[in-house]
Design a protein around this nucleic acid. Structure first.
Length: 899
DNA sequence: GACTCCCGCCAAAGC
DNA sequence: GCTTTGGCGGGAGTC
């Protein structure tokens, strides 16, 4: 660096600057001039035409490039080599140049002149970088003289600016003064990336990306004003006007007033571009998307093709430099329309999050962590939000309320006489593992639920097969277990633990229990909750006195959350997806990251374009969100539960927040996209999401079954709506924490202020029709559903439902009820069946078995929500077994209802 | 024809 | 007023 500067002298600069064209040609001359002594000596020798190719003297040729790289090791060597070459070349060059200018004219010179590629900014950047060590010692004088560099690299200064600007954006270089920069190398890179990631998160780039993708999918992205406006609006809403240059504490570039044009500067663009990688889950960003985002930020007006092209050009410039830095790699993303140029982040994971590494490998962002484990999730969320706070990820107020309400409800419930003691040992382990289990729970719950439902419905055959599959897919660990349910359970178990937690998480409506005098928590199917919220948002959050309602339904706080979030729309959606993903990943530990899934899904969706399913999916997602939130909470003793609840709630919030953005985008995309083919995956996701809610076990089958069943079995044909209906059916049986599962009648709902029928489209719980609609449901389910619908649930029904749900061990039955009994078949069976479905839905077998699995062994646990069942199973009575924190309450309710 | 992106005009900023 | 920076877009090179 210095060397060159010293030698070359800035004087040359002017020449260059003044005459760029000549510069190229002249540069060598200048160099020659620098080494005139040598050159002069040589000149006579080197007359020949070769000089034309003098380009080698320029680094343009491969050999020269190599030399450059080698020399790069040390400036001195470099300079020496260069000088030597110059001298050597000088022979050729000097004479040559004159020749070039004089004789050669354009053709030869051009021939000698490297091709365009050889002139590429990327190559130039390589050369530039070769000049300086990645990690320069502070002792060294790491100064860059642009003129010198330009001369040495034989390029016009303009090009150097392009490189320097990008490097500046990464704080690899800082401007010291006019025409002078300091080389920092990669010392600050990690910090810079961290900062950029944070900023990117704050700016909700993930959401923006998702939005853009959605719109692209929905309708081809034209640069129509309207659409652009929409986008811009969305961006605006999401964002903030312009993002100024991100500086590191010690790296201010203000010196030299570098910031003058900054807003549009390549530096800022570069940073934004990097942010997109750091924030996006796949860490693959297409130029188009990046350009749109960058344009969007700038302003709507800019959304014309010319602007777009310009942005693309600039992005190419930036990308070339980043590629030279090996931070990104060019790739192609095949989409509906075909291949699109894109770039994949190949740089270091963002340091702040160790997880980031995972993220990169897996899919990055929060989603990966989710898959990994709760802990990872937590870390991820912490990393993401810690300093910032929630800034952009602000949690939806409703969610906060929900959380609080949930906690309160839980506490109440727990404190309630019936509040179960901690769940059996199974739960305990779960508790310990709970966090990690949390993630798995949803999936498990789904599986269990599904499996149970199926079991109830059909024979072991299905169960066994499904169970096996399920175990395999969802939780490899589980598979080995003799009992399909158990197999499932492992994965589910966590969910069980989670369920309680989830339970807590979900703020049930608390209704006074007429008999017990204890208030009941009403859990609604997420979808219902959703609808309900729509009707009466407050409803969910606030405990409602409902004298009429004996059975309390647990309104999925999640559902509420989702609802609220849904309002947030994309965010919510995204959240949901993430949740689902998390659940899936946790439970099944899918290899694919959520982001990847999302991508795949989105792609598939794009192709398929089935909005119908999409809607249903959305609902499911919504529910899943709420559920996922619920799930997160681990079962534990009442006291523990409370604490855990709090922790989990926060975690949830964090997770949800973190995941929201990441997942939300994917989710929304998925929704819009419809995920037809990926239905399986989507279903899985959904199921997972449901599974999460499953913790509410009360309706687990409802949620899970519908999805899985729909996908697989007879029900496969069932539309999403139907699925929803199924879910509702399952939900038909409601459990109140205290009373246990209590069918809620529409009237009850009304009492609660819940428009039971309004709840529909899912009506899941309430409307018998919905039940009927769900063929998927086993008879038991139906019965249960009926019961649910029926104001007076028969004990048999309760038993059945409980068993079916997994709340109660198959053997255990509350009151004898033929219909229920048969239904009540071993839980394991049902679970297995559920698993089967899940497997099918989840083709991608989870790479990693969910940590929580060990816990799952209890079939009770197995069902995730069912978990309650597991806990219940422990206690045939159900209630007793019910672990404090969780679902058990429902069981109790069940018992009560049985009574 | 689309994709890339080099090239350099030209204006803002700085000195 | 000159130089430095760097935004911007035409259009050439590639595929």
């Amino acid at each position: 660096m210095q060397e060159a500067g010293g030698d070359m002298g800035t004087g040359d600069k002017e020449n260059h600057s003044s005459e760029p064209h000549r510069n190229v040609l002249e540069t060598p001359l200048k160099q020659a001039a620098t080494s005139q002594s040598v050159l002069t000596e040589i000149q006579p020798l080197t007359t020949p035409p070769k000089p034309k190719e003098t380009p080698p003297a320029d680094p343009w040729t491969p050999t020269s490039n190599l030399k450059m790289l080698i020399s790069a090791v040390s400036p001195e060597i470099r300079s020496r080599d260069q000088r030597r070459e110059l001298s050597n070349n000088a022979r050729d060059v000097l004479p040559a140049k004159p020749c070039l200018q004089e004789h050669l004219s354009g053709d030869e010179y051009e021939k000698s002149h490297p091709s365009r590629k050889e002139k590429s900014l990327g190559l130039l950047c390589h050369k530039f970088l070769a000049r300086y060590p990645d990690y320069p010692s502070t002792a060294e004088n790491n100064y860059i003289c642009l003129d010198e560099v330009a001369e040495e690299l034989n390029v016009e200064r303009r090009r150097i600016y392009d490189i320097v600007n990008v490097l500046e954006s990464l704080h690899m270089v800082s401007r010291l003064a006019k025409n002078r920069y300091a080389w920092h190398g990669r010392h600050n890179l990690s910090k810079t990336l961290q900062a950029l990631k944070k900023v990117g998160e704050e700016n909700k780039y993930t959401q923006q990306i998702q939005m853009i993708k959605k719109r692209e999918y929905e309708h081809e992205f034209d640069f129509d004003g309207e659409r652009n406006e929409d986008m811009a609006r969305s961006f605006g809403s999401i964002e903030h006007s312009e993002m100024s240059f991100v500086e590191l504490p010690g790296m201010e570039f203000r010196a030299a007033s570098v910031n003058s044009r900054k807003d549009k500067s390549l530096r800022v663009m570069s940073q934004k571009f990097v942010m997109l990688f750091l924030v996006s889950t796949p860490q693959i960003v297409s130029l188009e998307v990046a350009a749109k985002i960058l344009i969007g930020e700038d302003q709507l007006e800019d959304l014309d093709k010319s602007k777009f092209k310009t942005k693309i050009r600039r992005l190419y410039d930036i990308a070339n430099v980043l590629s030279s830095l090996e931070l990104i790699k060019k790739v192609h993303v095949t989409e509906e329309r075909g291949r699109k140029p894109a770039f994949k982040w190949t740089g270091p994971a963002v340091l702040p999050n160790t997880q980031d590494t995972k993220l990169e490998t897996t899919s990055t962002t929060c989603s990966p962590p989710i898959s990994d484990s709760i802990a990872s999730k937590e870390q991820c969320s912490k990393n993401l939000f810690p300093s910032r706070g929630k800034q952009n990820f602000t949690r939806h107020p409703s969610l906060i309320k929900l959380v609080k309400s949930i906690e309160n409800d839980r506490r109440k419930i727990q404190s309630a006489p019936t509040s179960p003691v901690k769940i059996s040992a199974s739960t305990d382990p779960n508790l310990s593992a709970f966090p990690s289990q949390m993630a798995v729970v949803p999936a498990i719950a789904k599986q269990q639920l599904e499996g149970q439902s199926k079991k109830a419905k059909e024979l072991k055959m299905k169960l066994s097969g499904s169970a096996l599959e399920f175990s395999v897919s969802s939780s490899p660990e589980a598979a080995p277990k003799p009992e399909a349910p158990r197999n499932v359970t492992p994965s589910q178990q966590p969910s069980l633990g989670l369920c309680p937690s989830s339970h807590s998480a979900v703020p049930p409506l608390i209704l006074p229990h007429p008999h017990s005098g204890v208030s009941y928590a009403i859990y609604l199917h997420p979808s219902q909750a959703h609808t309900v919220t729509a009707y009466n948002p407050s409803f969910m959050l606030q405990p409602l006195p409902c004298a009429n309602v004996t059975g309390a339904k647990s309104v999925n706080s999640k559902g509420l959350n989702t609802i609220t979030t849904e309002e947030g729309d994309g965010q919510i959606a995204t959240d949901e997806p993430t949740k689902s993903l998390t659940a899936q990943e946790r439970a099944t530990v899918k290899s694919e990251t959520s982001s990847q899934r999302c991508l795949k899904r989105s792609q598939a969706l794009q192709e398929k374009n089935s909005i119908k399913r999409f809607r249903s999916d959305e609902e499911n997602f919504d529910t899943s969100l709420g559920e996922s939130i619920k799930n997160e909470r681990p079962p534990s003793t009442s006291s523990q539960v409370n604490h855990e609840m709090d922790d989990f709630q926060q975690e949830r919030q964090n997770k949800t927040e973190t995941s929201d953005q990441n997942t939300a985008n994917c989710y929304e995309q998925c929704k819009r996209e419809d995920i037809p083919e990926d239905e399986d995956k989507t279903k899985q996701d959904i199921a997972v999401a449901f599974a999460i809610p499953a913790p509410e076990t009360f309706f687990p089958s409802g949620y899970l079954i519908p999805l899985t069943q729909c996908t697989h079995g007879n029900k496969a044909s069932v539309s999403n709506k139907e699925k929803a209906g199924i879910c509702s059916v399952q939900h038909t049986t409601y459990s109140s924490p205290i009373a246990g599962v209590i069918p809620v009648t529409a009237s009850e709902l009304k009492a609660v202020n819940i428009p039971a029928f309004h709840i529909t489209p899912f009506n899941i719980m309430l409307s018998p029709t919905s039940i009927a609609a769900a063929p998927m449901l086993s008879n038991s389910c139906l019965s249960s559903s009926n019961v649910g619908s029926a104001q007076n649930p028969s004990p048999s029904i309760l038993n059945f439902t409980l068993q079916h749900v997994g709340l109660i061990p198959a053997g255990v039955q509350v009151p004898a009820n033929p219909a229920l009994q048969h239904v009540s078949q071993p839980e394991s069976v049902g679970r297995s069946s559920g698993n089967v479905n899940l497997q099918e839905e989840k083709p991608p077998v989870p790479k990693e078995p969910p940590e929580p699995q060990p816990v799952t062994e209890n079939f009770f646990r197995t069902p995730g929500g069912p978990n309650t069942g597991s806990s219940l199973s422990v206690n045939p009575n159900g209630t007793e077994r019910i672990s404090q924190g969780t679902l058990y309450i429902p069981q109790r309710k069940l018992e009560v209802s049985q009574d």
